[in-house]
Design a protein around this nucleic acid. Structure first.
Length: 469
DNA sequence: CAGCAGGGGGCGA
DNA sequence: CGCCCCCTGCTGC
């Protein structure tokens, strides 16, 4: 464009079209996808960025979902509609049969898709009137009031965007471009990244002080409706340790564990989930995946369980190879039924997405998964720390109280943890139980031995390099 | 500066 | 209880 004061403004004429095209292509190739939508047994790997751009609902969901690659189960959405909406979000256009329009719009409302169900902002998308919005002639396209009204009506009976009222319309297939065979089979993939470190995140945790995760509650408070429990749960993110990534937030405040990312953690994790790395994104994603594999149990995802998930449940079949985190996206009685039906249909030997636990029993799996997803019930009154076990909290509390009950018999040292004292005593006794298998080095502590091996025998003198050439 | 050693915090079980 | 990780201070090359 123009210049002022010697400044040149370069514009990319075809930017929009090219940009959209590339996005679509990326989706087709499933590259850089970082969220998977699941509905009716089909899985759609897509991009959070795109979803967030097109839907405030998804935006908020991801905002409170630190998972690297969450799986969002959409129970009240037909896969055909989902495909159409994805087409709409990626291409800005979707073709739909007149008869399917109402249902599609309804789905769009549930997901708060901008331009379809929610008035979109100035740079509106190209929604062809005839295709998707026949009546828009009487409406401002950018502000589909009728739609909005409808949505508001619905919202008055449910909390915002969270409990999605189940669509009643029967399933059918709107025409759409791509995606029809996007459904993946389980073996296909996704095992990659799911893990994040954990972090006990608990967005919306009812027990949590409002200060901490105010956003969801604020949202809820905006609604006149009482907070829908399912909404809250929906945002709950359970983590496990090591999360690097986004999930780290809370931990960073008080944790040293910092996402086990840096050193060994990364390596170990990498080796810990090899299947995740090789299955699906053999490509550049790699690093990101490795990064995502924060912790051994890094199950950041929101895994629905019987108690938690109003309308959501694990897809057992999916989890078989999956290692995916599953996030509930819709709730409500219908959703629940739907999902349960789906699960029943998939009943077979299934594997926990977060560990190697396998069972053919859905209920057993739910119980097991609860061990990953349960909240940390023991909260420190002085800091954001939470623990799974009371004993851990007690230990933690000593940080605040300064209590160090374990005293060294040889010196004035005292420790808050018994194990620390044991390690300390070795410094007096000279006991070094941990011997390096590559050299005479011995250590009083196992982690020091590990560091030693890493530094001296793994990094330094890699046996292969010369041979490899 | 690299490596070692010790202290400390957290996690899962 | 065992393990992991981070941080920091010390020491020797």
């Amino acid at each position: 464009m123009m210049a002022s004061d010697g400044m040149l403004s370069l514009s990319w004429n075809n930017h929009k079209a090219t940009f959209c095209h590339i996005l679509s292509t990326l989706r087709e190739k499933e590259r850089y996808t970082d969220v998977t939508l699941a509905c009716e047994g089909k899985f759609y790997p897509v991009h959070k960025l795109v979803l967030s751009t097109c839907s405030e609902y998804f935006e908020k969901m991801f905002e409170h979902t630190p998972c690297k690659h969450p799986v969002v189960v959409l129970k009240d959405i037909k896969c055909a509609d989902m495909e159409a909406l994805l087409s709409y979000m990626y291409d800005g256009v979707v073709s739909v049969l007149q008869q399917d329009l109402a249902r599609l719009i309804k789905a769009a409302e549930l997901l708060q898709i901008k331009g379809l169900a929610v008035p979109d902002e100035p740079p509106l998308k190209e929604l062809s009137k005839k295709n998707a919005y026949p009546w828009s002639s009487r409406d401002d396209r950018s502000s589909p009031h009728p739609k909005r009204r409808r949505r508001e009506d619905m919202m008055t009976s449910t909390s915002q965007g969270s409990s999605l009222p189940p669509p009643e319309s029967p399933p059918s297939s709107p025409q759409h471009h791509q995606e029809s065979n996007q459904s993946w089979d389980h073996s296909k993939s996704h095992s990659q990244d799911q893990r994040e470190d954990g972090v006990d995140q608990r967005v919306g945790d009812p027990v949590e002080p409002a200060v901490e995760f105010s956003s969801p509650k604020q949202e809820a408070s905006h609604n006149q409706e009482p907070v829908d429990e399912s909404l809250v749960k929906e945002e709950v993110i359970e983590g496990s340790e090591d999360n690097q990534g986004e999930g780290m937030d809370s931990r960073i405040e008080y944790g040293g564990m910092g996402g086990g990312d840096s050193n060994t953690g990364g390596e170990e994790q990498g080796s810990k989930f090899p299947h995740q790395l090789d299955t699906k994104h053999p490509q550049p994603l790699h690093e990101a995946v490795v990064e995502a594999l924060a912790g051994p149990s890094g199950m950041q995802g929101w895994l629905g369980t019987g108690e938690l998930g109003g309308g959501f449940s694990m897809l057992e079949g999916y989890s078989e190879d999956g290692n995916q985190e599953v996030h509930p996206a819709s709730t409500g009685p219908h959703g629940t039924q739907q999902s349960h039906q789906m699960v029943r249909g998939l009943e077979a030997a299934s594997r926990c997405p977060c560990c190697s636990y396998t069972t053919t029993s859905r209920s057993l799996m739910e119980i097991h998964i609860a061990t990953h997803t349960r909240e940390k019930p023991f909260a420190c009154p002085h800091c954001p720390f939470r623990a799974f076990h009371n004993a851990n909290l007690k230990t933690h509390l000593r940080i605040h109280t300064g209590e160090k009950p374990y005293t060294c018999p040889y010196c004035p040292y005292s420790a808050a943890q018994k194990e620390k004292l044991k390690a300390h005593i070795r410094t007096h006794t000279g006991e070094k139980p941990f011997a390096c298998e590559h050299c005479p080095y011995r250590s009083t502590r196992k982690d020091h031995l590990k560091s030693h091996v890493r530094l001296r025998h793994m990094r330094r003198t890699p046996p292969q390099p010369p041979l490899a050439i």
